[in-house]
Amino acid sequence: MGHGGGDVIQELTTDHREVAELFGRIEGAVPGSEERKRLADELTIELVRHSVAEEQHLYPAVRKHLPDGDALADKEIADHGRVESLLKELEKTGAGHLDFSHLIVKLRTEVTAHLRDEENRLFPQLRDACPQEELDTLGEKIRSAKKTAPTRPHPKSPSTPPANKLLAPGAGLVDRARDFVTGRGK
């Protein structure tokens, strides 16, 4: 996701567009189909990588640069927790199960509200408060973090530094090995 480069806000906004597009593809796929499950797995991988990268790099910058940064970052991390719980539930649910479509709708509602909040509130404040050079550096860090981030939801993992920076790459390695063996995300 978000392979375009640019600063942290451009990178994450690109991710947001790709997530919205994936939701559209899931909703357009035949209910109960393997394609729908495959797309849901792809969505899960992208959302988990995105969330982990934000928690490692974006939210510490929010805490540092914005006057109400702690409260903002805590709210965003709480949003991630709700999304990860839904993703964990979705991971265990077959595409043919009655709950699958319901979970997709709940997930889309939660994710859309979170993305809108970041884009309309958090990103403009960060752009105003943070030097461009730091925004560019954060963009690089986000791209790098997504390469080693977990690809499966881990709702019980730490979401704040330093523990998240220490544990996420290991979880990511295990997740990518599981993905390779099972063919998930291909």
Rank of each mutant, 00 (worst) to 15 (best):
G4D: 12
L12I: 00
L12V: 02
R17L: 14
E18N: 02
A20W: 08
L22I: 10
L22R: 08
R25V: 06
R25W: 12
I26M: 04
I26C: 04
G28A: 05
V30I: 10
P31R: 02
E34Y: 15
R36T: 05
R38N: 10
L39A: 11
A40C: 09
E42V: 15
L43P: 02
T44R: 11
T44N: 12
T44V: 07
V48D: 06
V48A: 08
R49N: 07
H50D: 07
Q56N: 11
H57N: 10
P60A: 04
A61P: 11
H65M: 03
P67H: 07
D68C: 00
D70Q: 14
L72C: 04
A73K: 07
D74N: 12
D74H: 06
D74W: 01
E76D: 13
A78T: 03
D79F: 00
E84Q: 05
L87R: 03
E89C: 03
K92V: 08
K92L: 12
T93N: 08
T93C: 11
G94C: 09
G94F: 12
A95W: 07
A95C: 13
L98V: 08
F100A: 02
L103F: 11
L103S: 05
I104Q: 00
I104L: 01
T109C: 05
V111L: 02
T112G: 15
H114L: 04
R116A: 13
R121H: 14
P124F: 01
Q125P: 04
D128H: 01
E134V: 03
L135H: 05
T137V: 09
G139L: 06
A145E: 05
K146D: 13
K146Y: 15
A149C: 12
P153R: 08
P155F: 05
K156R: 10
S157T: 09
P158V: 00
T160L: 00
P161N: 02
P161K: 01
N164V: 05
P169R: 02
G170Y: 06
G170A: 11
G172K: 12
V174P: 14
A177H: 09
A177F: 11
R178V: 13
D179P: 02
V181F: 12
G183H: 03
G185Y: 07
